[in-house]
Protein backbone atom coordinates (compact mmCIF):
# COMPACT_ATOMS: atom_id res chain seq x y z
CA UNK A 1 0.00 0.00 0.00
CA UNK A 2 2.72 2.42 0.95
CA UNK A 3 4.79 1.88 -2.15
CA UNK A 4 1.63 2.12 -4.12
CA UNK A 5 0.87 5.45 -2.57
CA UNK A 6 4.34 6.71 -3.14
CA UNK A 7 3.92 5.91 -6.80
CA UNK A 8 0.62 7.68 -6.91
CA UNK A 9 2.03 10.67 -5.10
CA UNK A 10 4.99 10.91 -7.41
CA UNK A 11 2.87 10.76 -10.51
CA UNK A 12 0.37 13.14 -9.01
CA UNK A 13 3.09 15.59 -8.13
CA UNK A 14 4.52 15.36 -11.62
CA UNK A 15 1.13 15.97 -13.12
CA UNK A 16 0.63 18.96 -10.86
CA UNK A 17 3.83 20.51 -12.07
CA UNK A 18 2.99 19.72 -15.65
CA UNK A 19 -0.39 21.34 -15.47
CA UNK A 20 0.87 24.35 -13.57
CA UNK A 21 -1.14 26.15 -10.98
CA UNK A 22 -1.88 29.52 -12.43
CA UNK A 23 -3.49 31.84 -9.94
CA UNK A 24 -4.63 34.33 -12.51
CA UNK A 25 -7.24 36.94 -11.95
CA UNK A 26 -10.22 37.15 -14.21
CA UNK A 27 -9.38 40.08 -16.41
CA UNK A 28 -10.05 40.04 -20.06
CA UNK A 29 -6.58 41.33 -20.92
CA UNK A 30 -4.76 38.31 -19.67
CA UNK A 31 -7.71 35.97 -20.18
CA UNK A 32 -7.17 33.12 -20.65
CA UNK A 33 -4.16 32.39 -18.53
CA UNK A 34 -5.02 28.82 -17.65
CA UNK A 35 -7.06 25.93 -18.93
CA UNK A 36 -10.82 26.27 -19.31
CA UNK A 37 -13.11 23.77 -17.65
CA UNK A 38 -15.88 22.66 -19.96
CA UNK A 39 -18.60 20.73 -18.20
CA UNK A 40 -20.88 18.45 -20.18
CA UNK A 41 -24.13 17.83 -18.29
CA UNK A 42 -24.34 14.35 -19.81
CA UNK A 43 -22.23 11.23 -19.55
CA UNK A 44 -19.12 10.52 -21.58
CA UNK A 45 -19.60 9.03 -25.04
CA UNK A 46 -22.85 10.85 -25.86
CA UNK A 47 -23.30 13.21 -28.79
CA UNK A 48 -22.63 16.25 -26.62
CA UNK A 49 -19.40 14.71 -25.45
CA UNK A 50 -18.34 13.79 -28.95
CA UNK A 51 -18.97 17.28 -30.28
CA UNK A 52 -16.99 18.73 -27.39
CA UNK A 53 -14.18 16.33 -28.19
CA UNK A 54 -14.26 17.60 -31.76
CA UNK A 55 -13.83 21.16 -30.49
CA UNK A 56 -11.12 20.30 -27.98
CA UNK A 57 -8.05 20.27 -30.26
CA UNK A 58 -9.19 23.35 -32.20
CA UNK A 59 -9.83 25.24 -28.98
CA UNK A 60 -6.26 24.61 -27.93
CA UNK A 61 -4.98 25.65 -31.34
CA UNK A 62 -6.97 28.87 -31.56
CA UNK A 63 -7.18 29.87 -27.91
CA UNK A 64 -3.82 28.75 -26.65
CA UNK A 65 -5.28 27.04 -23.62
CA UNK A 66 -6.50 23.54 -22.91
CA UNK A 67 -10.15 22.75 -22.85
CA UNK A 68 -10.63 20.32 -19.98
CA UNK A 69 -13.81 18.32 -20.42
CA UNK A 70 -15.62 16.91 -17.41
CA UNK A 71 -19.06 15.43 -16.92
CA UNK A 72 -21.94 16.15 -14.61
CA UNK A 73 -24.65 13.83 -15.85
CA UNK A 74 -28.06 13.30 -14.34
CA UNK A 75 -31.65 14.27 -14.84
CA UNK A 76 -31.28 14.70 -18.59
CA UNK A 77 -28.87 17.57 -18.00
CA UNK A 78 -30.89 19.16 -15.20
CA UNK A 79 -28.38 18.30 -12.51
CA UNK A 80 -25.62 20.22 -14.25
CA UNK A 81 -27.70 23.20 -15.31
CA UNK A 82 -29.24 23.65 -11.88
CA UNK A 83 -25.75 24.02 -10.42
CA UNK A 84 -24.27 26.16 -13.16
CA UNK A 85 -24.86 29.54 -11.52
CA UNK A 86 -23.13 28.52 -8.31
CA UNK A 87 -19.87 27.87 -10.15
CA UNK A 88 -16.87 30.14 -10.66
CA UNK A 89 -17.76 33.31 -12.55
CA UNK A 90 -14.30 34.07 -13.92
CA UNK A 91 -14.82 32.62 -17.37
CA UNK A 92 -12.77 29.53 -16.64
CA UNK A 93 -15.87 27.46 -16.21
CA UNK A 94 -18.41 26.89 -18.94
CA UNK A 95 -21.07 24.31 -19.53
CA UNK A 96 -22.67 22.81 -22.59
CA UNK A 97 -26.35 23.59 -23.15
CA UNK A 98 -28.80 21.66 -25.26
CA UNK A 99 -32.09 22.59 -26.86
CA UNK A 100 -34.87 21.63 -26.43
CA UNK A 101 -33.78 20.31 -23.00
CA UNK A 102 -33.26 23.67 -21.33
CA UNK A 103 -36.65 24.81 -22.59
CA UNK A 104 -38.76 21.74 -21.89
CA UNK A 105 -37.36 20.42 -18.59
CA UNK A 106 -37.98 23.49 -16.40
CA UNK A 107 -41.53 23.71 -17.68
CA UNK A 108 -42.36 20.19 -16.52
CA UNK A 109 -41.52 20.41 -12.85
CA UNK A 110 -39.19 22.38 -10.65
CA UNK A 111 -35.83 21.04 -11.75
CA UNK A 112 -33.76 23.65 -9.98
CA UNK A 113 -33.35 26.06 -12.86
CA UNK A 114 -35.44 28.08 -15.28
CA UNK A 115 -34.66 28.62 -18.93
CA UNK A 116 -33.87 32.27 -18.21
CA UNK A 117 -31.44 31.36 -15.44
CA UNK A 118 -29.06 30.02 -18.03
CA UNK A 119 -26.62 32.57 -19.31
CA UNK A 120 -26.15 31.00 -22.69
CA UNK A 121 -24.13 32.89 -25.19
CA UNK A 122 -23.27 30.85 -28.20
CA UNK A 123 -25.17 28.15 -30.00
CA UNK A 124 -22.67 26.66 -32.33
CA UNK A 125 -24.36 23.82 -34.15
CA UNK A 126 -27.30 21.55 -34.39
CA UNK A 127 -27.94 18.03 -35.56
CA UNK A 128 -30.97 18.45 -37.80
CA UNK A 129 -33.88 16.08 -37.34
CA UNK A 130 -34.36 13.62 -40.15
CA UNK A 131 -36.56 10.68 -41.02
CA UNK A 132 -34.21 7.75 -41.45
CA UNK A 133 -35.01 4.37 -42.97
CA UNK A 134 -32.88 1.34 -43.68
CA UNK A 135 -31.28 1.06 -47.10
CA UNK A 136 -33.70 -1.68 -48.19
CA UNK A 137 -36.80 0.05 -46.84
CA UNK A 138 -40.03 0.10 -48.82
CA UNK A 139 -40.11 3.87 -48.32
CA UNK A 140 -38.17 5.46 -51.15
CA UNK A 141 -39.48 8.96 -50.67
CA UNK A 142 -41.24 10.95 -47.99
CA UNK A 143 -44.41 10.50 -50.03
CA UNK A 144 -44.22 6.70 -49.68
CA UNK A 145 -43.85 7.21 -45.98
CA UNK A 146 -46.88 9.49 -45.75
CA UNK A 147 -48.97 7.24 -47.96
CA UNK A 148 -48.23 4.24 -45.76
CA UNK A 149 -49.09 6.20 -42.62
CA UNK A 150 -52.38 7.37 -44.14
CA UNK A 151 -53.34 3.86 -45.21
CA UNK A 152 -52.33 2.35 -41.84
CA UNK A 153 -53.02 4.89 -39.11
CA UNK A 154 -50.87 4.29 -36.04
CA UNK A 155 -49.11 1.28 -37.54
CA UNK A 156 -46.08 3.19 -38.74
CA UNK A 157 -43.60 2.75 -35.91
CA UNK A 158 -40.66 5.11 -35.53
CA UNK A 159 -37.85 4.88 -33.05
CA UNK A 160 -36.38 8.02 -31.60
CA UNK A 161 -34.25 9.27 -28.75
CA UNK A 162 -36.35 9.91 -25.64
CA UNK A 163 -39.48 11.95 -25.16
CA UNK A 164 -39.76 15.69 -24.98
CA UNK A 165 -36.65 15.63 -27.15
CA UNK A 166 -35.90 17.10 -30.56
CA UNK A 167 -36.86 13.80 -32.23
CA UNK A 168 -40.12 13.51 -30.37
CA UNK A 169 -41.18 17.11 -30.91
CA UNK A 170 -40.29 16.88 -34.60
CA UNK A 171 -42.46 13.78 -34.87
CA UNK A 172 -45.41 15.57 -33.28
CA UNK A 173 -44.98 18.61 -35.48
CA UNK A 174 -44.61 16.58 -38.65
CA UNK A 175 -47.58 14.33 -37.91
CA UNK A 176 -49.72 17.43 -37.54
CA UNK A 177 -48.44 19.07 -40.72
CA UNK A 178 -48.75 15.91 -42.80
CA UNK A 179 -52.04 14.90 -41.25
CA UNK A 180 -50.84 11.43 -40.29
CA UNK A 181 -50.81 9.31 -37.16
CA UNK A 182 -47.59 7.43 -36.46
CA UNK A 183 -46.35 5.60 -33.37
CA UNK A 184 -43.27 6.95 -31.68
CA UNK A 185 -41.18 4.48 -29.70
CA UNK A 186 -38.77 6.22 -27.36
CA UNK A 187 -35.32 4.73 -26.80
CA UNK A 188 -32.52 5.74 -24.51
CA UNK A 189 -30.31 7.80 -26.77
CA UNK A 190 -29.69 7.84 -30.49
CA UNK A 191 -27.50 4.71 -30.41
CA UNK A 192 -30.30 2.52 -29.08
CA UNK A 193 -32.74 4.12 -31.48
CA UNK A 194 -30.50 3.36 -34.47
CA UNK A 195 -30.07 -0.18 -33.18
CA UNK A 196 -33.84 -0.63 -33.27
CA UNK A 197 -33.97 0.76 -36.80
CA UNK A 198 -31.16 -1.43 -38.14
CA UNK A 199 -32.67 -4.45 -36.39
CA UNK A 200 -36.01 -3.68 -38.08
CA UNK A 201 -37.80 -3.48 -34.76
CA UNK A 202 -39.39 -0.32 -36.16
CA UNK A 203 -40.20 0.80 -39.68
CA UNK A 204 -38.31 4.07 -39.58
CA UNK A 205 -36.53 6.39 -37.23
CA UNK A 206 -36.81 9.99 -36.20
CA UNK A 207 -33.10 10.51 -36.10
CA UNK A 208 -30.58 13.11 -37.05
CA UNK A 209 -28.42 13.85 -40.05
CA UNK A 210 -25.58 12.51 -37.94
CA UNK A 211 -27.22 9.08 -38.14
CA UNK A 212 -27.23 9.31 -41.93
CA UNK A 213 -23.54 10.22 -41.84
CA UNK A 214 -22.43 7.62 -39.33
CA UNK A 215 -24.36 4.73 -40.81
CA UNK A 216 -23.98 5.69 -44.47
CA UNK A 217 -24.60 2.71 -46.72
CA UNK A 218 -26.98 1.08 -44.28
CA UNK A 219 -29.54 3.85 -43.96
CA UNK A 220 -31.17 6.52 -46.10
CA UNK A 221 -32.75 9.76 -45.05
CA UNK A 222 -36.13 10.70 -46.54
CA UNK A 223 -35.95 14.35 -45.55
CA UNK A 224 -33.99 16.62 -43.26
CA UNK A 225 -35.31 19.47 -41.10
CA UNK A 226 -32.98 22.21 -42.38
CA UNK A 227 -33.34 25.52 -44.19
CA UNK A 228 -31.23 24.24 -47.03
CA UNK A 229 -29.88 20.85 -47.97
CA UNK A 230 -27.00 19.52 -45.89
CA UNK A 231 -23.69 19.85 -47.75
CA UNK A 232 -22.88 16.20 -47.09
CA UNK A 233 -26.25 15.03 -48.41
CA UNK A 234 -27.02 17.02 -51.53
CA UNK A 235 -29.56 14.41 -52.66
CA UNK A 236 -31.70 14.45 -49.54
CA UNK A 237 -34.52 16.99 -49.73
CA UNK A 238 -35.46 19.29 -46.88
CA UNK A 239 -38.91 19.13 -45.32
CA UNK A 240 -39.35 22.74 -46.45
CA UNK A 241 -38.86 21.81 -50.12
CA UNK A 242 -41.52 19.16 -49.75
CA UNK A 243 -43.95 21.60 -48.24
CA UNK A 244 -43.58 21.00 -44.50
CA UNK A 245 -42.25 23.92 -42.54
CA UNK A 246 -39.94 22.17 -40.08
CA UNK A 247 -36.45 23.34 -39.24
CA UNK A 248 -35.46 21.64 -36.06
CA UNK A 249 -32.94 19.47 -34.34
CA UNK A 250 -30.83 19.16 -31.25
CA UNK A 251 -29.06 22.48 -30.76
CA UNK A 252 -25.88 22.73 -28.75
CA UNK A 253 -24.28 25.75 -27.23
CA UNK A 254 -22.37 27.07 -24.29
CA UNK A 255 -23.37 28.87 -21.12
CA UNK A 256 -21.40 30.42 -18.31
CA UNK A 257 -22.39 31.01 -14.69
CA UNK A 258 -24.42 34.22 -14.42
CA UNK A 259 -22.17 37.10 -13.48
CA UNK A 260 -19.29 36.16 -15.74
CA UNK A 261 -17.83 39.41 -17.18
CA UNK A 262 -19.19 40.33 -20.60
CA UNK A 263 -15.77 40.83 -22.18
CA UNK A 264 -14.65 37.39 -21.06
CA UNK A 265 -17.81 35.94 -22.55
CA UNK A 266 -17.10 37.80 -25.75
CA UNK A 267 -13.63 36.30 -25.97
CA UNK A 268 -15.00 32.81 -25.51
CA UNK A 269 -17.73 33.46 -28.03
CA UNK A 270 -15.22 34.76 -30.59
CA UNK A 271 -13.16 31.64 -30.11
CA UNK A 272 -16.15 29.41 -30.72
CA UNK A 273 -16.93 31.39 -33.88
CA UNK A 274 -13.34 30.98 -35.00
CA UNK A 275 -13.48 27.24 -34.39
CA UNK A 276 -16.70 27.05 -36.39
CA UNK A 277 -15.06 29.00 -39.21
CA UNK A 278 -11.97 26.79 -39.33
CA UNK A 279 -11.99 24.93 -42.64
CA UNK A 280 -10.68 21.68 -41.17
CA UNK A 281 -13.21 21.76 -38.39
CA UNK A 282 -16.07 22.52 -40.77
CA UNK A 283 -15.12 19.65 -43.00
CA UNK A 284 -14.96 17.21 -40.11
CA UNK A 285 -18.22 18.31 -38.54
CA UNK A 286 -20.15 18.39 -41.79
CA UNK A 287 -18.87 14.97 -42.73
CA UNK A 288 -20.30 13.74 -39.43
CA UNK A 289 -23.68 15.28 -40.21
CA UNK A 290 -23.60 18.35 -38.00
CA UNK A 291 -24.96 21.67 -39.25
CA UNK A 292 -22.86 24.58 -38.01
CA UNK A 293 -24.56 27.83 -37.01
CA UNK A 294 -23.44 30.82 -35.01
CA UNK A 295 -26.06 32.17 -32.65
CA UNK A 296 -23.90 34.66 -30.79
CA UNK A 297 -24.68 36.40 -27.51
CA UNK A 298 -26.64 39.29 -29.05
CA UNK A 299 -28.93 36.93 -30.96
CA UNK A 300 -29.23 34.35 -28.22
CA UNK A 301 -32.32 35.69 -26.44
CA UNK A 302 -34.34 36.08 -29.65
CA UNK A 303 -33.33 32.63 -30.77
CA UNK A 304 -34.44 31.03 -27.51
CA UNK A 305 -37.72 32.96 -27.54
CA UNK A 306 -38.49 31.84 -31.07
CA UNK A 307 -37.61 28.20 -30.40
CA UNK A 308 -39.51 28.21 -27.11
CA UNK A 309 -42.75 28.99 -28.92
CA UNK A 310 -42.48 26.04 -31.27
CA UNK A 311 -41.16 23.59 -28.72
CA UNK A 312 -43.75 24.39 -26.07
CA UNK A 313 -46.57 24.07 -28.57
CA UNK A 314 -45.30 20.71 -29.79
CA UNK A 315 -44.65 19.49 -26.27
CA UNK A 316 -48.19 20.38 -25.26
CA UNK A 317 -49.74 18.47 -28.12
CA UNK A 318 -47.38 15.58 -27.35
CA UNK A 319 -48.66 15.49 -23.78
CA UNK A 320 -45.21 16.17 -22.41
CA UNK A 321 -46.32 19.52 -21.00
CA UNK A 322 -49.67 20.19 -19.46
Amino acid sequence: MKTNLTKLLTSAAAATLALGLGMATAQADDFPSKSISYIIPFGPGGESDISARHQQPFFKKLFGQDLVISYKPGGGGAVGWSQLNSMGKDGYTMMGINLPHIIIKPRQKDVGFKTDDIDGFHIFHYTPDAIVVTEDSEFKTLKDFIDFAKANPGKLTLSGSGKGTANHLAKVTFDKLAGIKSTYVAFKGTGASVQALLGKQVKAQWGYTSVGAKHAGKVRMLAVAMEERHPSFPDVPTFKELGFDIVSGAYRGIAVPKGTPADVKQKLSDTISKINADADFRKKMEADGFALIDVTADKYADFIAEKTKGYVEAAKSAGVLK
Partner: peptide, 11 residues
Protein backbone atom coordinates in the same frame (compact mmCIF):
# COMPACT_ATOMS: atom_id res chain seq x y z
CA UNK B 1 -2.46 11.20 -2.22
CA UNK B 2 -5.95 10.32 -3.34
CA UNK B 3 -6.86 13.98 -3.52
CA UNK B 4 -3.98 14.67 -5.87
CA UNK B 5 -4.65 11.53 -7.88
CA UNK B 6 -8.25 12.45 -8.48
CA UNK B 7 -7.94 16.19 -8.91
CA UNK B 8 -4.71 16.35 -10.90
CA UNK B 9 -4.25 13.07 -12.72
CA UNK B 10 -7.86 12.09 -13.30
CA UNK B 11 -8.95 15.72 -13.59
Amino acid sequence: GFYLLFSRVLQ
